[in-house]
Structures are given as structure tokens and as C-alpha cells.
Design a protein around this nucleic acid. Structure first.
Lengths: 106, 106
DNA sequence: CGCAAGGTACGATAAATTTCGTACCTTAGG
DNA sequence: CCTAAGGTACGAAATTTATCGTACCTTGCG
């Protein structure tokens, strides 16, 4: 058995601004992005984020972020780890994440 | 009678990133923002934008942009003119509009 | 092994968004 | 004055999104 289960992630070239902005328009999801940005590339577990919602809903939000191309997820069977796709985003939409991070949690 | 009818616009301080990003996540609305950015402050009429939708729907999109704080609208009875709230946005979320404009229509 | 922790998938419900038709309003211009 | 052009407001339908409960799966650990 593989150590990790495959998860779909968009290629850099297919990351759409529509989906990225829609993903970032939610405060919980933006919070995740902010925390990941602060972690400087260190993977963070889903369970570690302060999102006061049901498990199924958390799964939903992380999927939105992943399918938008904002985060990279690795499945470990129990627990998943997340990293921000900083370089990919900077290549695709230069300055966007910087502006979002600078804005803070609001 | 006043020459213009008042329209509600958010104060700079009450512009929310949630609403701004949600507004920008629609391609038609982002197109409007792009065109206004290119007009360099020259007001543009609603009717001038290439949005192939019913009139009522166009009204809806312009309202979303206005209430998010992205554009300033002036009513002239027939016709409205729109300008991008460039300075306000730059003050509130530095770098955000620049990144959006740089990304282009996608 | 057997259980707890972390997470998913499915299905349902609720809420928000998008789109439109219709009726109506306002100004410009003949 | 009368009409056309640009837009709104209201209400409705269709679509999307957010939220959750429940059942289930996987790994770590005692």
C-alpha cells in the first residue's frame, strides 16, 4: 500500500482566478491560507485550524481550497497535512497572495 | 430637484475583504473593474460594458460592485456613470487591485 | 486485536447567488 | 408633448454554496 493516497490538484496553468477569489472570499478559508502562509512551508494538519464547524464542513472548505489550487494536501490515512502553494500562486497571480496576507484576518 | 440621486456606497473603513473578493470572483464583474482601471478615472456608462445579459442582471452586477466598495456610481436619471474606487481600495487593501489588474481577463 | 482520532462520502436541508420578465421611472431630444 | 434609451424594483425560478448527520475508512497505539 502506498504511504499516501492521491488527491486531485490543479496544474499551475489551470488555476483559475475565479475559483481562487471565490475560495478566498470565505473568512474561514482565508484564515487557513493566512495560517499556512505564516507557517512558512511547514505542513499543518487540518485538525489544527480554529474552525468551529462540523467535520464534514471542514472537509468541504479544505476541498474548495485544494481544488482552487491554493493548497496542497497529502493524505496520511488518518490526518491530512496542508501546505500553501505559494510559489505556484506567485507564478500564476503575482502579488495576489501578498496582498491577501497583508490584509490579515480582517 | 438634485441633479443626481444618492446611492449607497460603503465608507473606506467598512469595505470588507469578503465582499470585495466575492465581487471580484465573477468574470463579468472583474471585466468591469478591468475596463474601469484602464479608463484611468474617466467615468464609464453602464451601457458601455460588453456584458451579454439582461438589463436587470446587469443592474445586479453593478450593485454588487458598488456595495462591495469597488466602484462609485453616479445616477443621472437615464444612465449611470461608474468609476473605480482606486485610491480607496489601495488604501484599504494595498496591492490587491494591482494584482487583479495584472492578472487580466484570464 | 480493538479503540480513538482524523477525515471522507453521501444525502439532505437551508441559504445565498445568478438570471430573467415585467412594469415602471427619469432624462434627452425631436 | 411624446418617445426612445438607460436603469430600477419587484418577484420568481434555477443554480450554487454552506452546513450538517450518519456511516464508514485508515492509521497509530495500548
Amino acid at each position: 500500500m502506498p504511504e499516501t493516497t492521491p488527491l486531485w490538484h490543479p496544474e499551475v496553468s489551470e488555476i483559475s482566478l475565479d475559483k481562487v477569489l471565490a475560495a478566498l472570499s470565505d473568512p474561514y478559508r482565508r484564515r487557513v491560507v493566512l495560517d499556512l502562509a505564516a507557517s512558512e512551508g511547514t505542513p499543518l494538519r487540518c485538525a489544527g485550524f480554529p474552525i468551529p464547524l462540523a467535520k464534514a464542513t471542514r472537509t468541504h472548505h479544505f476541498r474548495v481550497l485544494r481544488e482552487a489550487g491554493l493548497i496542497h494536501q497529502v493524505d496520511h490515512g488518518n490526518g491530512r497535512t496542508n501546505t500553501l502553494r505559494r510559489d505556484d500562486m506567485d507564478r500564476r497571480f503575482p502579488g495576489l497572495l501578498a496582498a491577501i496576507v497583508a490584509a490579515g484576518p480582517e
